[in-house]
Amino acid sequence: MTTALAAAPPRHPHDDLLRTERIPHIWCSGCGIGIVFGSLMAAITKSGLARQDVAVVSGIGCTGRMAGYIRLDSFHTTHGRAIPFATGLKLARPQGKVIVASGDGDLLAIGGNHFIHAARRNMDLTVICVNNFNYGMTGGQLAPSTPFGAKTTTTPQGNPDEPFNFCALAAACGASYVARWTALHIRRLTNTILEAINHKGFSFVEIVAPCPTAFGRRNKIRGALDLLKFYYDRSVVKNHLAPGEATIDFDHNLVVGKFVEFDRPTFLDHYQMVNRGEVEAWPATGVDASAAGQRKAG
């Protein structure tokens, strides 16, 4: 039995979707990105989509390595430009599903403007943001998600800035599906990613993931398991809460859940309407030329 196993190592259920020649991957021991990546692959398998209809695009950073490990059409873009690339891909091949998987620094610091405008246009993308509260790959520098007071390489006395609330930002910009989970809510996360893939419109899923090497070590939570538990123990599930109230409060109220889900026309729907001439003249009430100038200013 043992000799047979040594000759042919057992095949993991995700091996069909993994570029196994690149495994083991570069992520540190206990990194949450691997868990999210497993959830993403499980969701893609569950969705039953044909392999040629799914593409994964990612930017730079630890999470950006996902595109290189998945055996699908994938692209590793320049820093922050995952969403513009994915937008082009989606518009060129609208029948496919495009998944953007990237980190908080890539999507919302350098790629922040691309993110808010893709959400505004309701571009039909699935954006998976692994939030580890710092720039892990370059050594743990301050990111827009770093909690107030947390220590990083560039803020050794503690972070003086208030962090972004990514879910509130996405919802305020017009995203039609917004959810947040921690890396230990694995089953719910898989279901959420599956829903986000099937949702028509801009879907945003934020995952609070442990970064034991760069973030935990400087903040006195050294073990990967401790950090995973730290986030999970403080999480409170509140589905359909107004995203503005969905705070990441590490004392007792790290709100997770599905906050926003509604349907509205995507960019492509509107663009085709305009091209077919189906949009009414603007403004819809029309302009009354005789009334112009009669109303006194002030």
């Binding site: 057992p10 993991h12 993994l18 497993g38 959830s39």
Partner: peptide, 13 residues
């Protein structure tokens, strides 16, 4: 299957 989904390395199933 919980070990399988929680493993970040795809090393156990």
């Amino acid at each position: 299957h919980f070990c399988e989904v929680i493993c970040p390395e795809f090393a156990i199933f």
